[in-house]
Design a protein around this nucleic acid. Structure first.
Lengths: 223, 223
DNA sequence: TCAATAGTGTCTGTTAGACATTATGGA
DNA sequence: TCCATAATGTCTAACAGACACTATTGA
């Protein structure tokens, strides 16, 4: 996928694909053909007339076989940092892939848990950090946690995803109360038994229209 | 500022400078030399080795004489939309300028209220819309409203700025309670009398360290 | 004096978190 | 039976919004 073209593109589109793997966020990296154990984010140059977002979708399809279920632009990165393309800037996108999506075979691609990322070009490292930070901060404006789960999930799984992304424990009753009030999920008539306790009902993401919440102002900054 | 270079740059840096003018947000536009009544956002090509953010600061200084008090990257824009530079993409920045900053003289630059923007290149129009949207959504993570006010301001002015940016009325006592709890301002010993009523005390932005608020999760999305 | 604005105290309904309890399966 | 997990009801402290009140100036 980082197919080298003969001419250097004016910029690149780099895609950070994230999925949960064993209770951790993982990012899809691609083995650099020349390097022995060097890895890179999926990236390509633009095609003429193609929108940036469409290019990110195309790159995702070319590495995963299907598009991400959620995608957002992170921004432009450059600042003199190195990048495999040798371009001055790269436009970063973050895409979410549901848990359980099979890895592409062949050994060229692999999911790396974000706690254990191999060395990357500095610009891609910065891009990856921004992607993870964006996913964390967009959680309350976008259905990020839902998009990382399969179509049907238990409320405990959803809460664990929130707890993992927010890196803090949540209160079960409060979480479910908020979820109920937000009209974001609907129960299915399936249940899943996992080990000992009572089976959990499976839910699906099904947001319903509601008037935007009139909350008080938030002053959550320190500088 | 849009000084035409002989060679087309690989991309441009476009800056959306915003300031309040008569209770409205206004954006700084630059008259296009050739066109009779055509306007453009300040933009330039990159210089080698210069960080993107630094370039935005340089452009701001070159048009205003001083840098913005707050700046953030909006992202990369292209998608086949027209731009005066004829480049494929532009990296947008939004910068805030305190109320009362004098306009640059000469008639080349002018502040336009956002409700009354002249025709712009489509890419710049999209960039401007994103900038305004970003300022509105970043209000509770960044001291946006404070940066649009002069160094010293009354609490009523601050509340009016919030009300204007959020486009809704706020409760005076609640607003001040939240402000007090956030340790973001400190009173000065100056007062300002404005017309009839009791004079208002002037405050300055002086954020103090505090433990990050442990709020409940927010599910403020509908899709 | 009145009018207008600044600033604050109190009350109340809402909500997040703590805690307890019931429900329902497997071992 | 006991144990583990799901799911939910109740209590309480914190908080946002409503309202009223005092304070201080100009007209």
């Amino acid at each position: 996928m980082p197919e080298r073209r003969t001419r250097k593109p004016p910029y690149t589109i780099d895609v950070v694909l994230l999925t949960p793997v064993r209770g951790q966020l993982a990012v899809l990296l691609c083995r650099v053909p020349e390097g022995r154990d060097k890895w890179t984010l999926p990236w390509e140059g633009p095609r003429t007339g193609e929108a940036l977002d469409a290019a990110a979708g195309r790159i995702t399809k070319s590495v995963l076989g299907e598009d991400a279920v959620w995608r957002e632009q992170i921004g432009a990165f450059g600042d003199g940092k190195r990048h495999p393309s040798d371009t001055e800037i790269s436009v970063g996108f973050v895409g979410l892939v549901p848990m359980g999506t099979p890895s592409p075979v062949g050994g060229v691609y692999a999911w790396f848990p974000i706690a254990d990322i191999p060395q990357l070009a500095p610009r891609q490292r910065q891009l990856l950090d921004s992607a993870i930070s964006m996913v964390r901060t967009r959680m309350d404006q976008s259905p990020v946690a839902f998009r990382l789960l399969p179509q049907m999930f238990t409320l405990t799984e959803l809460q664990q995803m929130y707890e993992f992304l927010l890196a803090r424990r949540l209160h079960k009753a409060s979480f479910r109360r908020a979820l109920h009030g937000a009209w974001l999920v609907e129960p299915t008539d399936e249940w899943r038994s996992e080990g000992r306790g009572r089976p959990a009902q499976l839910y699906r993401y099904a947001p319903r229209k509601r008037r935007p919440a009139q909350r008080g102002i938030r002053l959550d900054f320190m500088s």
